[in-house]
């Protein structure tokens, strides 16, 4: 299937996705358990620890305020780590991509499979975290189930975003920049742990342009069941727009890197 100048094959994307799944199966526990605990530590430390000192935020308890963020977190951190660390290992250490693109699989397929796989990990984490959060009674509305779509589409977009960065990495050395200067600020300043209205006006403007903000906002609306569909539509449009830009860029950059 050709879209613009890109050449996709759903079958090939799926084949690469399954390859990642098969490799993952060989080390399944180390892959699932640690990322699952991390948001829960935040729930206790911030939601109940700091939350005890905080009055209500926008009419909800502090734990309630951050609970949807912690689900959306999975869709940021899982692809944000997988499409950097995992992809880079395949790119420079194992040289898997060189083996894969010698077959009928195209580079577009490989990039799509990477983003999809990162998102799939996010979905698994989000479901696990979501179940615990629901057990604490922090997902009052059945609309919460809709958060899964934020996680899927947001996760793919974040995957593509991460791949753009990964395509520039010669090796593992510049990895800290990504965590310290990209993932952490996104996590902190996207309406996640405090309302962005607490930021100075310029900070708010920046926050509104960041990709993760448009994942946290709909997640919270779904969690509370106070849904403004026009806002949801805008957020999904942002996610789609970001995806197209980041994905196109990632394909271009990976082609430049892999095909001389």
């Amino acid at each position: 299937m050709r879209i613009a100048t890109f050449d996709f094959s759903a079958r090939c994307i799926w084949a690469v996705f399954l390859r990642h799944r098969d490799v993952f199966k060989s080390s399944i526990w180390s892959g699932i358990i640690p990322p699952f605990f991390e948001p829960l530590f935040y729930l206790f430390a911030m939601g109940y620890g700091i939350g005890a000192m905080v009055s209500d935020v926008q009419g909800m308890s502090y734990a309630q305020f951050i609970a949807p963020s912690l689900i959306a977190w999975a869709a940021l951190v899982a692809p944000g780590v997988e499409c950097l660390v995992g992809t880079l290992a395949r790119l420079v250490v194992q040289r898997s991509f060189e083996a894969i693109i010698a077959t009928p699989v195209s580079i577009e397929d490989v990039v799509a499979a990477e983003a999809l796989y990162g998102a799939a990990k996010g979905v698994v984490h989000a479901i696990a975290v979501g179940i615990v959060i629901a057990a604490f009674g922090l997902l009052p509305s059945w609309w919460s189930l809709m958060i899964i779509f934020v996680v899927i589409f947001g996760g793919i977009m974040i995957g593509a975003f991460t791949l753009v960065y990964t395509s520039f990495m010669p090796n593992f050395t510049p990895i800290d920049f990504w965590f310290s200067l990209v993932l952490t600020p996104l996590l902190m300043f996207s309406d996640t742990f405090f309302p962005i209205t607490n930021l100075p006006p310029w900070g708010q403007t920046i926050a509104e342009f960041t990709p993760f903000y448009h994942m946290v906002r709909p997640s919270r609306m779904f969690a509370m069941g106070t849904i403004d569909w026009s806002v949801i539509a805008v957020d999904f449009a942002w996610i789609a727009g970001y995806f197209v830009v980041f994905f196109s860029l990632a394909v271009y950059l990976f082609k430049r890197r892999l095909v001389k």
């Binding site: 040289r95 060189e98 083996a99």
Partner: peptide
């Protein structure tokens, strides 16, 4: 290819 780019896991 020249390198043994197998899936090591």
């Amino acid at each position: 290819p020249q390198d043994n780019n197998l899936d090591p896991d």
